[in-house]
Structures are given as C-alpha cells and as structure tokens.
Design a protein around this nucleic acid. Sequence first.
DNA 1: CATATTTCAGCGTTACTGAAATGT
DNA 2: CACATTTCAGTAGCGCTGAAATAT
Lengths: 144, 144
Amino acid sequence: MDLDRAPDRLRTLPSFLLNQAALEARRVVAETFAGEGLYRSQFALLAALAEFGPQSQAELSSRGGLDRSDVVRLVDDLVEQGLVRRTQDPADRRRNVISLNQSGRRRLRTLERKVDAAQEKLLRSLTPAERTQLVELLGRLLGL
Amino acid sequence: MDLDRAPDRLRTLPSFLLNQAALEARRVVAETFAGEGLYRSQFALLAALAEFGPQSQAELSSRGGLDRSDVVRLVDDLVEQGLVRRTQDPADRRRNVISLNQSGRRRLRTLERKVDAAQEKLLRSLTPAERTQLVELLGRLLGL
DNA sequence: CATATTTCAGCGTTACTGAAATGT
DNA sequence: CACATTTCAGTAGCGCTGAAATAT
C-alpha cells in the first residue's frame, strides 16, 4: 500500500485512516472466510444467533449492522449450507425465526478461532493496552 | 444502525469496529462529495498533487492508497472537470505527468474546508485528546 | 387504516484482476 | 530480455433503494 508516502493531509485525516484500516482488516479477514466459503457478514449472523438465541431476520439485521435485504440472501446461503434453520414464527406469521443448529454451532467455534487469529495479525503493531484503547475509541465513535 | 444491540463478540472485535467506523465515515463524508460531483478518492489525488507537485499516475496510486487502474478513471474525470492536466513525461514516455491547475487548487481548498467539517461531525463524541490518540493508533496499525 | 416483516430485482461505489499496449 | 507504466474490460463484495407481498 505504501501509505507512508501519502501526503500529510491524508496521513492525519481520520476518515481516510479509518477507511484504510478497514480495508486492511478486510484483506486480513478475507483470507479466513474465502477458505471457509462464507461471507464475513455471515459470521456476524452466526455470532448474534449464538449470543441471543433464535430470532427474526429483522433482529439479525439490526444486531449485525446489516441491511434487511442482505440478511435474506445471507440466511438463504446459511440454510443451504446447513448451518441454520429458518422457520415461520407461529406467534407472528410475518416473521421468520432463524436458529443455529449443531453444525452451525460447530462452524462458529472454528470461525471464532480463525477470526481471532486474524485480529492478532491485524493488530500486531499495537500493544495489548493500545488494542484495548483502539476498541474503546471506536466503540465511542460508534455510540456503543 | 443500532449497533448497541450487537453481540459482545462483535462489539469488541477490532475488524468489525473498524469496518463499521469506516462505514460511518463514508456516510458522513459522502454528503460532501455528492454535492461536489467528485469521488472521495479524487480528494486524495488532489491532496497528493498539492503536496508533492506534478507526478505520475503510479506515484498517485501509491500515495493515495488507490489501485492503478482506478487512478486512470479518476484522473480522466478530473481532466474533464478541468481540475488537472495530463501530459506525457518527455523523460520517460511511458509516464503521464499529472499536475494541478488553478481551478484544481481552488477546488481543493473548498474541499478541505468541507472535509474538515465532516471530520468534526464524525468525531463529535471524542475529546481532542482522544481524536489525536485515534489518529495515532490507526497510523501505527497501518505502519505509518 | 397504518405499520412491520420478508423478499426480490436492481443500482452505485469500491477495490481488485488479468491482460494488452507501449516504453525503458 | 526483464521490468515499469498506462489502459481497458470485467468481476466480486458491499451497502443500499424501492416496491411488492404478506401479516399484524
């Protein structure tokens, strides 16, 4: 990337740095998911399901920071891969209830290990304290 | 976005937070550039030209963190808009030398003001010290 | 009726790939 | 010859829009 040659105007511009850092993150994490035949955003879906249990696509959408219409396609694919189940909610027949199955739970555990390894690679130039700081600052920026 | 409802697994995952923060940055900054009829990456080109003077597209590519092939199209557009000149380098006829002209310099000044205003908006939940810290951490992550 | 959920078809931007053409 | 630069055509992923269908 050679960003050390970038103009000062960019090297200190938060929106630019965030963009470049996100790109780098994407590159590092992409390797993991390419090998798994999954999209990165599907990890968010699986994680939300593991943490909050069966839920509607609308909930998955807001919890994973994903568009409602993308959730449809991503869940389609997860169903095809046998990682989740999609059933109609009897209490509100507009809703689909998505739930993790055994295979999904197993797959998530594998992914978590690989995703964590990717973070390590991404953050290798930061000390543990700095990593915490970064997470904290980003969280605040996002209103978390 | 409602990311406060996100699972812990994501709320503390650096690659996820970087991605979401970059998205937010893109949303905020996009307003500026939509109104200007320019792409965000063209700002990077103009800034590099202002700071380092006339240079080849290859240099612009590495300095702006852009792909060589995208630089072609972005410069095409900047030429059309009359903001830069593209001339062949007599010393190495493979190269194009891109240079800012008056109109480009003026336009850049306007953009800088608007981009700075957008940063303010993006970072409004952080103190000045925290903003500096964030820039520092991202710079380190990127090897700057 | 207004509102919520899912689904579909399609768009714009972005980063990228591979290869050709040209020149050093 | 190996290598660098520009250009072109095309791809994939991502975030998003608008509208239809269904249900509350």
